[in-house]
Design a protein around this nucleic acid. Structure first.
Length: 418
DNA sequence: AGCCTTTGACCAGCG
DNA sequence: TCGCTGGTCAAAGGC
C-alpha cells in the first residue's frame, strides 16, 4: 500500500472579514453574535423556516433580480462609480484583511503551482461572497468567538457542495482548495472557541476534518480538526460498510441515513492520522431532520439551551434554528441532485420561482478566488448572457468547451468585480 | 429488544 | 474475458 503523497506547499490566501459578518455586530455592541445569527447572515433565509428551515428553496435568493444577485446572495451590488470612497474603503478592507492579517487565520490553500488564486467550488445557493466573507473561513480575534460556526459553516459548505450536482460538473477544469488552518494554533483556536461556546458536542465538523472536494489531480485539502467520530450533522446514520480504497491505507466508511426509505448516503474517508479527511454526501433527505438528541443525562443539548437562551432576542437566533436553516438549505440544495424526483411533500409557495432559480443553478458553477488585494467570484456558466449582462461588473477572461456530464459545455470564465 | 458497528463476501462497472 | 476497484449486502456480535 502506498500512502498518499504529501500535499504540496500551500500558498496562503487569507480571507478578510467584511460586511456581512461585521455588520452583524454593528449596533450589537461588543457582544459576539450567536452562531445562529452568524449563519443566518451567511445563509440568508426566510425569517422562519417553520421547522423545515429553508423550507423553500427561494431562501435568500428568491428575491434576486439578476443572475448575479442569485449568485452573490444578499451582498449589496458593487458600489457604483459615484461611490469611490466606498470602493476604496472596501479595497482597503480587503487589503487589510489579507495574508498579513493576524490571528489564527483559516486560510485557503491552493494546490502547488496554482498561483495567487486557486479556486474552490461554492455550492449554488450559497452566497459566494458570503462564503468569502464568512468567518467560517477566517478567524479573527476582532470578530469574537465564532469557532463553532466556522466549522459548522465549513461542514455545511462541504455538504452542500457534495449535494450539488454542479459539483460533478467538469471539476477537471478547475482547481479547488479547501479552507485549512494554517497551523496547529488554528486548530487549537477552533477547538477552544467551540469549547468556550459550550457547543462542541453538537457542532458538525467539530470532530472531523471537512474537506472541500478537490477538483484537480485528486488533490485534497482539508480543515484539520480533531476527529473522534463522524459528523453529528443532525441526521441519524448507520454504517453499512467499510472499505480500504486504493491509494490509501485508511478506510472509507459508508453510511446510510437511518430514516425509513431515505436514500441519502455518505462516505467518510479517513486520513492516515485517523482524522476524517473527506465527507461525500449523496442523495436528498426525504424527511425532516430529526429532533436534536438529548444528552444521556436527559438534559437538553447545548444547541437547545442556546436556542432557549437566544430565541427571544432574535428572530433568527438559536443554534438549533441555525442548524435547521443550514441543513434545510442543504436539503434545498441537494434537491438539485439525486433527489429531484423526490417530493418532500412540503408546501412550497414559491415553487415556480424556485424552479427558475434551480434552473439557473444547473447552468452554473461558482468558484471563489481571492488574492491579497482583490476578491473575485469566478463563475463557470453555460449561459454567458445571463451572467455578463445583468448589471454587475463582470470581466470575462476566458471561454472554453469542456467535457461535461452528460454533455460538453461551453464554459465562460468571468470575474465579478467588487 | 433494538440499533449499531464490524467484516468478509458479493456484485457491478470499467479498462 | 479477466482482473481490479469501489460500493453494497448481510450475518454476527456488541452496546
Amino acid at each position: 500500500m502506498s500512502a498518499r503523497p504529501p500535499p504540496p506547499p500551500r500558498p496562503r490566501l487569507a480571507l478578510p472579514p467584511r460586511s456581512v459578518a461585521e455588520s452583524l455586530f454593528t449596533g450589537a455592541g461588543d457582544a459576539s453574535p450567536g452562531p445562529l445569527t452568524l449563519a443566518s447572515a451567511l445563509f440568508p433565509s426566510e425569517p422562519d423556516g417553520g421547522g423545515g428551515g429553508f423550507s423553500s428553496s427561494s431562501g435568500g435568493a428568491s428575491g434576486a433580480s439578476s443572475f448575479t444577485q442569485l449568485l452573490i446572495g444578499n451582498l449589496a451590488p458593487p458600489p457604483p462609480a459615484s461611490h469611490p470612497q466606498q470602493q476604496q474603503q472596501r479595497e482597503a478592507e480587503w487589503g487589510r484583511g489579507g495574508v498579513a492579517r493576524a490571528g489564527p487565520a483559516l486560510s485557503v490553500a491552493p494546490p502547488a503551482g496554482a498561483g495567487a488564486g486557486a479556486m474552490f467550488t461554492v455550492p449554488p445557493g450559497l452566497s459566494p461572497s458570503g462564503l468569502l466573507d464568512s468567518p467560517g473561513l477566517l478567524f479573527s480575534p476582532a470578530m469574537g468567538d465564532f469557532g463553532m460556526s466556522h466549522q459548522q459553516v465549513l461542514a455545511q459548505v462541504t455538504a452542500q457542495a457534495s449535494h450539488s450536482p454542479l459539483r460533478m460538473f467538469d471539476h477537471t477544469e478547475q482547481q479547488s482548495f479547501s479552507a485549512a488552518p494554517t497551523s496547529s494554533d488554528a486548530m487549537q483556536h477552533m477547538n477552544s472557541v467551540a469549547n468556550m461556546a459550550g457547543i462542541s458536542d453538537m457542532v458538525p465538523g467539530n470532530n472531523e476534518n471537512v474537506a472541500f472536494q478537490s477538483a484537480e489531480a485528486s488533490q485534497r485539502y482539508q480543515v484539520n480538526a480533531p476527529v473522534d467520530k463522524p459528523a453529528d450533522d443532525g441526521y441519524n446514520w448507520r454504517k453499512y460498510g467499510q472499505k480500504v480504497v486504493k491509494g490509501s491505507d485508511c478506510p472509507r466508511s459508508y453510511y446510510k441515513c437511518t430514516h425509513p426509505n431515505c436514500p441519502v448516503k455518505k462516505k467518510v474517508e479517513h486520513a492516515e492520522d485517523g482524522q476524517i479527511s473527506e465527507i461525500i454526501y449523496k442523495g436528498k433527505h426525504n424527511h425532516q431532520r430529526p429532533p436534536n438528541k438529548r444528552g444521556k443525562d436527559g438534559s437538553s443539548s447545548a444547541a437547545e439551551q442556546n436556542e432557549q437562551s437566544n430565541d427571544t432576542t432574535s428572530g433568527l437566533s438559536g443554534v438549533k434554528r441555525d442548524q435547521e436553516a443550514i441543513y434545510g438549505m442543504s436539503d434545498q440544495l441537494s434537491g438539485l441532485s439525486d433527489g429531484d424526483d423526490i417530493d418532500d411533500g412540503e408546501s412550497r409557495p414559491h415553487e415556480a420561482d424556485d424552479k427558475e432559480i434551480d434552473n439557473k443553478r444547473r447552468n452554473i458553477q461558482i468558484s471563489s478566488q481571492r488574492t491579497s488585494m482583490e476578491a473575485k467570484i469566478i463563475v463557470q456558466t453555460t449561459s454567458e448572457v445571463d451572467l455578463l449582462d445583468d448589471g454587475y461588473r463582470w470581466r470575462k477572461y476566458g471561454q472554453k468547451v469542456v467535457k461535461g456530464n452528460p454533455h460538453p459545455r461551453l464554459v465562460t470564465f468571468a470575474t465579478l468585480l467588487l
